[in-house]
Design a protein around this nucleic acid. Structure first.
Lengths: 83, 83
DNA sequence: CTTTATTTGTCCGTATGTATG
DNA sequence: ACATACATACGGACAAATAAA
């Protein structure tokens, strides 16, 4: 289980963990971030997970599509799309 | 119960007690200072408790976060934040 | 096309706690 | 002691979008 710092919001701490997984490569581009899955892993309400994901989305680290899910965003420049 | 010195503000005396608990380790870092709880323990109004907490906050002994609560501050040096 | 399942979006309410008046 | 506002956190319910059978 996770040891949450009571002086800071859970969603913020969860966002940090996810941000770290993304930057470390643990969560590669296209990796799916399921709300229900994160809800279970971090043992929090969906509302809390959504706040964390929203933060990452605001940072451009993840993209969300209704009915599909949230995914780790590929780096803006270094995408292998042919010119 | 507490024996308050009538010649001095209650909040000041309460602040002293709390300051002592913090420095003695009775209240370790991250320990929560609930206004409701202190209100009951010291048998004073919430305003009185708030004045005491405000004093400790001004001294940097506690940190307060909106919607979360007031907590004993960790020492400035021993923060686990990397960068 | 319809049904089912999955997932995000949005709204409701409840509870706790701080900030302010 | 009361009321209002805001922030966190939890839980439920339904809608919308997507995909697959």
């Amino acid at each position: 289980m996770y040891d949450y710092d009571p002086t800071r919001p859970k969603w913020e701490q969860i966002a940090e963990v996810l941000r770290d997984r993304i930057s470390s490569g643990g969560y590669p581009p296209k990796h799916k971030l399921s709300e229900v899955q994160l809800e279970a892993e971090f043992d929090v309400a969906r509302d809390t997970v959504r706040k964390a994901v929203r933060a990452l989305r605001a940072e451009g680290l993840v993209v969300t599509r209704i009915g599909m899910g949230s995914f780790v965003a590929g780096r803006p420049e270094t995408d292998k799309s042919p010119a």
